[in-house]
Design a protein around this nucleic acid. Structure first.
Length: 852
RNA sequence: GGGCACGUAGAUCAGCGGAAGAUCGCUGCUUUCGCAAAGCAGAGGUCGGGGGUUCAAAUCCCCCCGUGUCCA
């Protein structure tokens, strides 16, 4: 990056000098006379015991000071976004404040909620989870303080110069940091295809903030200026608080009194881990994470189990729920939504604790059994076993070893070995570019006026062609609903041409026609939408909201929509929940939604400012994913459910007609899928199902109400006849066996030998042999011919006569392949004379062996 | 999303190429005034599903499904 990028007028105005760090060789700007940048590792911590700000601040006070500072300088204070980044499919959690605005705001597709703005955004990062408690400064959840500005051409808010000036003013004036101690190190930031210069702000060994200026797009080796430049700053709230107090570790400063109290029961590292994890869990669970074994839910499980293990090994530990409660009460002072649903959160955590104990118990048993078995065979449990157990049972080696008699030494690099086992696994992303294949619409084509937002019932309209290319047409206004929000697209006609698909690209809605559009820009066209299809889609969409509302009502607010699809035949909704639904729960939900349908409640769809909507309804608005923008489209089912949603909806619940839940499945740990139908489709399906029932009842010759009993009776009859035929077969074989024993047996020494040819199948031979050799010292030598192949079967209860040896002796006679053990053996080969010869050979060998 | 482990009688599991097992539970009988207990006898299995290899598959291979777990 060009040095001129960092040569800010502010630095010159304020008297900064540019220098080079003798350690890391980076260039930096400073007022003081430094030979190195003031950040670790170039400089050691200098603030512990010597706070660098004018006075100590608590976490809350520091946050307030920061946000207030920027508010007074023209920034709008924005409420935090959920820590669960539902609006992105490349990450699970918000890891920096700018995540709130990616990709839509930063790409310019949607205006920011305010400009400029300031925010304290809770962020989750798990890559340094092992450092938490140990390093003195790592957290899994931290708050990133930030001020952001989004500059459009001709409408610049502020950029590098003003940004840096604001930062410096905050530090040196409001916080009282000695201006001579701070350094601004030149760095380059790059991410998501964008890059720009950045400044790392350091003092007393601590990196306090990073000021990032996104201004270029990487195009191969060349840099292209971005149309929208972004001021992306990040200040560590915890670090600021720590620096202001100068405590030994950041945890003391951040957790204050609670830390001191917990220290009476736990060592400092464990105390920090517990408090950090409790804080992170409160945010995650409040924001709708349900612990599970994959994706985002795994991290909640990870934190929970780490905390539980600490509690388990510490005598007189408090309950995990008590620790979470205490943390949530503190957080609620700033984030009132945390702890609002305390009881539900307890249910989720309780379910997870139970699972943990079950898993531990299962693992214990498995390990103990394995240990016994290994010891019985004179072996020992190996490190390899410990690795497998960690991977497959979730047992850390120190716990596993407790169950063992002979304990292998746990290698110091155990977790490195675990990681090595996982090398070569390649995570695949199923990221699908939505606008893939769509033609690029030239700039200057006006945004399409989306009329379906205002009136979902109009299905015929006139509009003017705004742009056309091949089969794609954009209009100045349209009632066609484009694919989005899990709702299938509208179909219909433009003029005489069929519309097969409708998609949105930025602010433009493209109609995909069956063939090339014959129109010119400005032509007037008539649009007609397939009304039946639209109605069905609307019913399914409103039904989805109804179900979501009912599920949250019946199961608790931990239920969040995790996905949905509304087709014409049926629709489905995926929600987070910690176990499969019971039949009763399903019934209750179905009854409840149909009740709301009958109550004919108004469904209002309207645009409202984001701040106002959030204030009135909270973050649960974002069931279908967070929707950035100043204005939100709110779909409100009166007194029941409110969601930010761009879909087409009925205006009264009665229009949904009826809702029938068709299927329930647990699609993964922590996510339940309901498949359902509404409106005509629900009635059709119910009729179909009834018809199937009637037909089944007719065939069984019972009334519908007696169907289950009828089926039971039928099954019993089948079982009975199966038993009878098995019994007959056994009798037949028994008779055959008795006859053979009395008429065709031969006694050689102490051994009774039966030789016989039969027409039995493999199983029959086996069973007959069994019957013939019930007594000790019996040998059965049997042959049978089937499908042009000969089978020889030998069973023996004589220690002298080994069945396998007999078969071995007979095999050459009929080119037989086979083998067995001393008790039973079989071979298959040529039929006819060869088989007879084999039978003779086996019989001869049997007599020879018996005589010995 | 990927790796690993697991899926066998109602329950918990063993068996890991040669004739489906153990323990508990269940049924009946013996014993008892009755119960518990004990003894004896018995019922109960498409060895998760589907392909393949083999003379032979619960067992080996492949693909699904389900459960658990580790990781991103």
């Amino acid at each position: 990056m060009d040095a001129a990028e960092y040569d800010l007028p502010f630095f010159h105005r304020a008297g900064f000098h540019r220098r080079s760090c003798v350690v890391c060789h980076s260039a930096f700007w400073a007022l003081g006379d430094h030979d190195r940048c003031q950040e670790a590792p170039c400089r050691e911590y200098g603030f512990i015991g010597h706070p660098i700000f004018a006075r100590p601040y608590s976490l809350d006070a520091m946050r307030e000071l920061y946000l207030g500072f920027f508010e007074r300088r023209g920034h709008a204070r924005i409420r935090r976004y959920p820590t669960v980044a539902r609006w992105r499919n490349d990450v699970f959690f918000v890891q920096a404040s700018v995540y709130d605005f990616q990709p839509w705001v930063t790409s310019g597709a949607i205006p920011p909620p305010a400009n400029p703005l300031t925010i304290s955004q809770p962020c989750l990062r798990f890559n340094d989870i092992d450092e938490v408690g140990r390093s003195g400064r790592h957290f899994t959840l931290f708050e990133m303080l930030a001020h952001h500005a989004f500059n459009r051409p001709g409408h610049e808010i502020y950029f590098k110069d003003r940004c840096t000036e604001l930062c410096h003013e905050l530090l040196t004036q409001d916080l009282g940091l000695d201006p001579l101690t701070v350094t601004y190190k030149e760095e380059v930031w790059e991410g998501g295809g964008n890059l720009g210069p950045s400044l790392s702000v350091g003092a007393a060994g601590l990196e306090l903030a990073t000021l990032v200026f996104m201004e270029y797009t990487r195009d191969g080796d060349a840099l292209k200026p971005m149309p929208l430049t972004v001021v992306d700053t990040g200040y560590g709230l915890e670090r600021f608080t720590w620096a202001s107090q100068g405590t030994r570790s950041a945890y003391e400063a951040v957790f204050g009194e609670t830390f001191e109290e917990m220290r009476r029961t736990f060592p400092p590292t464990e105390t920090a881990i517990l408090l950090d994890h409790a804080r992170a869990l409160n945010f995650m669970l409040t924001d709708g994470i349900v612990p599970s074994n994959s994706k985002g839910g795994y991290f909640a499980r990870l934190l929970l189990r780490r905390a539980l293990r600490i509690l388990e090994k510490t005598p007189e530990s408090p309950e995990l729920i008590a620790i979470l409660d205490r943390s949530s009460r503190e957080l609620a002072r700033t984030f009132p939504e945390i702890g609002e649903n305390r009881e539900d959160l307890h249910r989720v955590v309780r379910a997870e604790i139970d699972r943990f104990h079950e898993a531990v118990e299962r693992a214990r048993q498995t390990i103990r059994r394995y240990d016994e078995k290994v010891r019985a065979t004179g072996g020992r449990v190996t490190v390899e076993d410990l690795l497998t157990w960690y991977d497959s049972l979730g047992v850390p080696p120190d716990l596993a070893v407790e169950e063992l008699q002979h304990r292998p030494a746990i290698p110091a690099d155990f977790y490195k070995q675990v990681a090595a086992r996982h090398e070569g696994e390649k995570p695949t992303t199923d990221y699908v570019e939505v606008t893939e294949g769509l033609p690029e619409v030239p700039a200057g084509v006006p945004a399409t006026e989306a009329l379906y937002f205002l009136d979902p019932y109009t299905v015929a309209f006139d509009a003017h062609v705004a742009w056309a290319k091949g089969r794609y047409v954009a209009l100045d206004r349209t009632y066609f609903y484009p694919t989005g929000g899990g709702q299938a697209t509208d179909r219909g006609n433009l003029g005489d041409l069929e519309v097969t698909d409708v998609e949105r690209t930025g602010p433009i809605i493209l109609h995909h026609l069956e063939r090339d559009a014959p129109w010119q820009v400005g032509d007037r066209v008539h649009g007609r939408i397939d009304a039946a299809r639209r109605t069905q889609l609307m019913q399914h969409h409103t039904a989805t909201h109804l179900l979501n509302g009912a599920l949250r009502e019946q199961l608790g607010p931990h239920v969040w929509q995790a996905g949905a699809y509304k087709g014409t035949e049926s629709a489905r909704i995926d929600v987070t929940h910690y176990r499969a639904l019971t039949k009763e729960e399903l019934h209750k939900v179905e009854r409840r939604v149909n009740q709301i349908v009958r109550e004919d409640r108004p469904v209002k769809s309207y645009f409202e400012s984001r701040g106002e909507a959030e204030r009135r309804f909270g973050f649960t608005l974002y069931q279908g994913g967070a929707v950035p923008g100043r204005e939100l489209r709110v779909v409100e089912i009166e007194g029941f459910d409110v969601e930010a949603c761009g879909g087409t909806h009925c205006t009264h619940t009665s229009e949904v007609g009826a809702i029938a839940i068709l299927d329930e499945e647990r699609i993964q740990d922590g996510v339940v899928r309901l498949t359902f139908a509404s409106g005509e489709r629900a009635l059709d399906l119910r009729e179909e199902h009834e018809e199937i029932l009637r037909e089944a009842a007719r065939r069984l010759g019972v009334p519908v109400a007696k169907l289950p009993e009828g089926i039971d009776k039928l099954l019993e009859e089948i079982e009975e006849s199966r038993r009878a035929s098995r019994g007959r077969r056994r009798e037949d074989l028994g008779a055959t066996a008795a006859k053979l024993l009395s008429e065709a047996s031969q006694r050689v020494g102490a051994v009774t030998i039966v030789v016989a040819s039969t027409d039995l199948d493999r199983h029959g031979l086996m069973e007959l042999s069994r019957l013939l050799t019930k007594e000790p010292n019996h040998v059965a030598v049997l042959a049978s011919e089937r499908d042009g192949r000969g089978t020889l079967f030998v069973g023996s209860t004589s220690a002298r006569v080994a069945a396998s040896a007999l078969v071995e002796a007979a095999r050459p006679s009929f080119e037989g392949k086979g083998g067995g053990n001393p008790a039973a053996a079989t071979a298959v080969g040529e039929p006819g004379a060869a088989l007879a010869a084999a039978l003779n050979a086996a019989a001869k060998e049997a007599r020879r062996a018996a005589k010995r």
